[in-house]
Design a protein around this nucleic acid. Sequence first.
DNA 1: GATACTGGTTACCTCAACGATACCGGGATA
DNA 2: TATCCCGGTATCGTTGAGGTAACCAGTATC
Lengths: 135, 135
Amino acid sequence: MVEPLDPEMFDPVCPSSALPVQIGDKWTAMVVLCLEAGPRRFTELKTPLRGVTPKVLTQTLRAMERDGLVTRTAYDENPPRVEYELTPLGRSLLDLVAAARAWSREHLPALLEARAAHDSSPHASRLKRSPDSRA
Amino acid sequence: MVEPLDPEMFDPVCPSSALPVQIGDKWTAMVVLCLEAGPRRFTELKTPLRGVTPKVLTQTLRAMERDGLVTRTAYDENPPRVEYELTPLGRSLLDLVAAARAWSREHLPALLEARAAHDSSPHASRLKRSPDSRA
DNA sequence: GATACTGGTTACCTCAACGATACCGGGATA
DNA sequence: TATCCCGGTATCGTTGAGGTAACCAGTATC
């Protein structure tokens, strides 16, 4: 079995709300990351995906299953056990996620800085006079 | 001046609705692509972005300006002229867009095939018996 | 009995993105 | 006078992703 997931693997302060790249739905990229090391159970996924409701996690996983990104295996045991695992196709998304994370590491600070500067500026005139002059 | 934009540079049949990667808002990636070759005017952008309403295009461009991805330069001339241009930060998104497009070229057919297969299948039982026994 | 655990389902609500349509101001042109 | 062009605004409506809360079956344990 693989190691348990770090409940804090996703920084709640640096959410995808800021970065301009999204893979699939809101949680898809995080699910991919959670499944990188091996199959995981439903409740196992819920832990690091803090705040995700079972409904939304189910929706996400169903959509990923539909698209061939994960497989769902339910074992008729007691207590019930369901495992989700990345397919090779889903695994191919890891490169993309890595690219997005690389971009963020490199450029997100500049973006946030630009945003902060813009928000705090007194909205200077957006007009450039013709090359003559100005009063 | 740069060459005019091809009004059909974006295939209306292969929209981003299918592919699981999104850069910024709905139109952001396309705007980046449109600005790749040089500055463009508002109406110039509207043409290849078929169907975008001026309101939404304005929203997109303002958001990109806020994030330091484009610069907006308005010339006080007649008729009015406004030019949008990629900043180096905006230009850095080109790599990401290229990565997303590469992934799509390589893997999107498999995803769509999986989706079609899933949608047309009679939803086989999602239950797997415990591995110990047989029937 | 009562409660808890697993892997969900169902009904309802909210909010922001997106879109449709119409309109505007200021020249220049006819 | 009227119309066109450009770069937008204003107002309205739709849509859907996502969230909240409650509930479920089956077993097991208290």
